[in-house]
Design a protein around this nucleic acid. Structure first.
Lengths: 252, 252
DNA sequence: TTTGATAGTGTTCAAAAGACACATAGCTAT
DNA sequence: ATAGCTATGTGTCTTTTGAACACTATCAAA
């Protein structure tokens, strides 16, 4: 979100932005990365937003989203997918706090801006080993505890969540949220968190293993105070084969 | 596409347009509504485009799409759904013919424009009783015969088709393409056309009837040179009940 | 009255989904 | 060392859903 970046200010398109709903998972619950307006005032979710920026006239939308992500997380090759465009004429600037923020960061705070929303999935520990609280200027918030955001970002978050839920039933994108090596229980928990419902353990394991996209590493967890679990990794090759044949339902 | 409409030219946002992929069905195949650049030169699909326009700064994206649709078809209350945003910096103006067209219709033909694409479903006879050929300035083209379009509209068409295919498996939106009263064979044919594959007749009928969203009108086709078919209509009430319970798979 | 064209109808088999309970392995605390 | 805690890992049965398949019925036209 740095207006004084290498690129010239004039190249920023005043009417089009991208916003990124960045999801993370800490093996316990689903998080979303939020930034706040930097105000000193009392905490309020209405001041938090998902990261975004106006686009440059030289980049396409995916590139703009990738740039925003990289500036914030320094991670490249992140899973990224468009949610859609949001363009209510009053989508920004409805709230008093929105306007203050806009005046601080935008050369033309009154411009009508439509935004193209993306969601992305990151391995939380790779970016930030601890989930920060709302009080920080950028931090992870549990998705379940977010009820309001700046601008129309709450609506965007919900749309992103909806699309993630739909997508995860169709393609195994959830691995982007897990460490390289993970247990079936962790994967199971991830699906339950995203879909927000319980899934039968045995049925889940059967189904996911039958897809043949997991490699059993013949390696076990160590140091856990219970029976250690087998570790698995995502098998990219088998997945690609599967994708080509056009599977389109996990059935969760 | 009239720049001299009631609204003032200045209100047109130079950077954002909407484009509408309008699908129609004539009980035999699926069509898409295309307009051409009005040139006198030899026919070329590369001169055809789906209807669209820059948005006004006072309207939201859905309203802009609705306006474009209404200007072209005079139909309101059309089924409309966003496909997504397309924003390659070179998406318009790559082809020579694109640039000619842009210069004719745009106040700022060089501006970088991102577009928000929609698809909509209309009852063809309500709008235009005959499918016009490509030669007309606005007409229906069989989707299967479209291989190239102006700008990035071919890509947009394919994205719309993909979304329509996905959606029709999940929600019974196909009725928007059929007359109020229709036969099961017509519905069957519609699904086959959209999904581009054969569906077993008996299985299709069983499944669609089990959804309980059709009312048998106890009325038959007349004047057909074969056994006349029962007429049905879409049962909005039952569908709403069903939607609330959240059914999400027809399973075609 | 024969022909051509589409409507309409059930059963059987295979595959997938859903429900369900107990023994196991490692750590920890005593 | 042993008892207890905790999460792992495993199989069967039932129900539901999907897929394959062929013949008779009705109307109009020739």
């Amino acid at each position: 979100m740095n207006l004084q970046s290498k690129k010239n200010k004039q190249e920023l398109n005043p009417n089009v932005s991208v916003d990124c709903v960045i999801f993370g998972f800490d093996l316990d619950q689903l998080y979303v990365l939020l930034i706040d307006s930097g105000s000193n005032e009392a905490f309020s979710q209405a001041r938090m937003a998902v990261p975004g920026d106006l686009i440059f006239d030289t980049e396409n939308l995916d590139e703009a989203a990738t740039r925003v992500l990289k500036e914030l997380t320094s991670i490249e090759n992140i899973y990224l997918e468009q949610i859609g465009a949001f363009g209510d004429p009053n989508r920004i600037g409805k709230k008093e706090s929105d306007r203050e923020w806009l005046e601080a960061i935008r050369a033309q705070p009154e411009a009508r801006v439509i935004t193209v929303a993306y969601y992305s999935l990151v391995r939380m520990p790779n970016f930030n080993p601890k989930a920060s609280s709302f009080a920080k200027s950028a931090g992870w918030a549990p998705v379940k505890e977010v009820f309001d955001l700046a601008f129309d970002h709450y609506e965007i978050l919900q749309a992103g969540l909806k699309q993630l839920r739909r997508k995860i039933k169709i393609q195994p994108i959830g691995f982007n949220l897990l460490p390289e090596k993970f247990t079936l229980s962790q994967l199971h928990k991830l699906y339950e968190c995203i879909l927000d419902k319980e899934l039968d353990k045995r049925n889940f394991r059967r189904k996911i293993l039958n897809l043949n996209i997991l490699t059993n590493l013949d390696e076990k967890q160590v140091g856990v105070p219970h029976k250690p679990s087998q570790l698995f990794e995502f098998n990219e090759e088998n997945y690609k084969k599967l994708s080509k044949e056009g599977f389109d339902n996990f059935g969760f």
